[in-house]
Amino acid sequence: MEHKLTISPSPHLFSRRSTRGIMGDVLIALLPALAVSVWVFGFDVLAVTAVAVGSCVVFEWLAGRFLLGDGGTSVGNLSAVVTGVLLAFNLPSNIPLWLVILGSFVAIGIGKMTFGGLGKNPFNPALVGRVFLLVAYPVQMTTFPPVDGVSGATPLALAKSGGLDAVDYNSLLMGFKSGSLGEVAALALLLGGLYLLARRVITWQIPVAVLGSMALFSAVLWFVNPGVYMSPLFHLLTGGAMLGALFMATDYSTSPMGWRGGLIFGTGIGVITIVIRLWGAYPEGMSFAILIMNSLVPLINKVRR
């Protein structure tokens, strides 16, 4: 026989979707928010993002090459790039660049590769990096550049300290507000999220559960006492709500499997976020909420059965 036939068990047909393709889709979905961020904060944004992506990829390669023994090939699946962009999105644009590198080290080195790499990490790597920086370098992490000449406090911080007079929902939606460089552009993030939904990279359950439970919880409080509590819309458009719900909570390896688990997981995140925002020490609780719920994922996966 001149032809050497290939033999394999069925199926013999495979979808074109690959890990790399999925990560590529996530990157595409993050582009509009990045563009808005550059518009709002200037070119510092690109520097921070480039450094974060670069150092994440380098750390991934180093860990893969010298610790996991995969020769650093996991860089090719673009997941380190996604982690880099997401980490950058969670940092102020005027952060010292050496902190970005440190954050990347914690995110990739400790948050991901120590557990064995992609798919094995229990916590969202980018959030591990962000929370580490937030706790270790609170000043640098909460000093935001001024937007349109307005002082650099985030709307949530203002609301918490009672310094917020009038809410301009339009600028909240478009991104003209103070905050981490990637979280401000609510509308652009929503656009990216819709792209991911349309490409079936993510399912609707987690984002809807996160945003829905946030809205519901804050709405109840708002109806009870609108003088003290902010409106649900305000909560949805500020802080890391959109970024967290659409891009961070939906991270595959740190979220539960299946739709039922997704709803439980998302609801937990939404409720914890609002609790931290209103009664916690920090003005924003999205990253903590996601990490807390990350730790419950194995349990949720078991309950779902």
């Binding site: 050497k4 036939l5 290939t6 033999i7 068990p9």
Partner: peptide, 19 residues
């Protein structure tokens, strides 16, 4: 001489049940 090329999961048990 090898006449075909097996392309399934790397396991004799899987191969043996395939062909």
């Amino acid at each position: 001489p090898v006449l075909s090329h097996f392309d399934g999961a790397r396991s004799c048990a899987v191969a043996a049940s395939t062909y």
